[in-house]
Computed example of a mutant assay.
Amino acid sequence: MADSREHAFAGTRGGVTAREWPREGARYVALLVHGYGEHIGRYEHVAHALVGHGAAVFGPDHMGHGRSAGERVMIEDFEDVVTDVRAVEELARAAYPGLPVVLIGHSMGGLVAARYAQRYGAGLAALVLSGPVIGDWKAVRALLAPPEVPEVPLDPKLLSRDPSVGAAYANDPQVWHGPFKRPTLEAFARTLEAVSAHGSVGALPLLWVHGDDDRIVPPAGTRTGVEELRGAVWAERLYPGARHEVFNETNRDEVLSDVLEFVDGVLAG
């Protein structure tokens, strides 16, 4: 795997740790935005593929996640997470001035990346969303409906058809294995509305990748959000039988190849 190093900085609500996978002679910068309850270390193989493709790669652990500070999985305002990702982009631009920046977000990270593109998309070259929580995500309404949030931790079997992915997730001490917290769910609901209200990313090229057997973030609900978000240049890849984490699926090589091909098209055009 590619070498990496850590950076630490003062985030909006405490210290944030980010990882860099450097690339000498990089063609572009890839900014990775991880999902709920996990950490950027789970994207080592994605970063390795991107570095091999010519990218310098950066990605933070969000507040309350991984090696960053904060109560575990507590996010009261996703706008703060967007602001922290912006600080990582600025760090990357200082290290690799003048290079195009591609933003890649998965699941909750797709929600963050979508909102980021609405706020800062003018400085991006492309946006890639993997199983993003945008559009009509019925789970958030179901979890917020009762007086007490149900204790329904994520089932690792829903991540991938590859059983080793679920096993690694279940045994990862940096992954949150407990229930959702109400303030975080309320922040999800507000940000889903904000992304919908702010509309299209305009000329920013968008690639949407999703497993068609994703039961955590069903693609039918996401499609509503993609239709609101996309501009004139966009593409989708829906993978038959794939579950939530398409970068960790049995056809992960196909998924990564599709992302790299999309990036090549953007950089060439």
Rank of each mutant, 00 (worst) to 15 (best):
H7Q: 03
L124Q: 04
A8V: 13
Y43L: 11
E24I: 02
E261L: 13
I75V: 14
S4V: 08
A242I: 01
L99E: 00
R42E: 01
E20G: 06
V165D: 11
E261Q: 15
A95N: 01
R19M: 03
S107A: 12
G110V: 06
A49E: 11
R252H: 06
A197E: 15
G221V: 05
L204R: 01
G15K: 09
P205L: 00
A220Q: 15
L50V: 09
R19L: 07
A30T: 04
V112C: 04
H198G: 07
H65T: 10
V46L: 13
D214I: 05
V149R: 11
H45R: 13
G66K: 04
G64D: 11
G54E: 02
V246E: 04
D162A: 11
D61L: 09
V85W: 01
D172W: 05
H198N: 13
A2H: 07
H210L: 10
V33W: 08
G41K: 04
R243E: 07
G35I: 07
R23S: 11
T222V: 11
F247W: 13
L154V: 15
V149C: 06
K181H: 11
G25S: 02
F188Y: 14
G37D: 08
V73K: 08
V133P: 08
P132F: 12
A114M: 07
E44A: 15
F262T: 07
G11I: 08
P173Q: 09
T184H: 14
V46R: 08
V209Q: 02
A10K: 02
G123F: 00
G199Q: 10
V133Q: 14
V195Y: 12
N248F: 02
L260W: 06
M63I: 15
D77A: 03
W234S: 14
E6F: 11
T12P: 05
E261V: 14
L207C: 06
N171C: 02
V101T: 09
D61V: 01
E90V: 10
L185Y: 00
T17P: 03
D264W: 00
R230Q: 12
S130Y: 04
F262L: 10
D214L: 03
E76L: 06
G269Y: 04
R19W: 00
L229D: 01
T17Q: 14
T184E: 12
A49Y: 05
V73Q: 08
I40R: 10
P146K: 05
G64T: 09
M108G: 08
H210P: 10
V51Y: 09
Y43K: 13
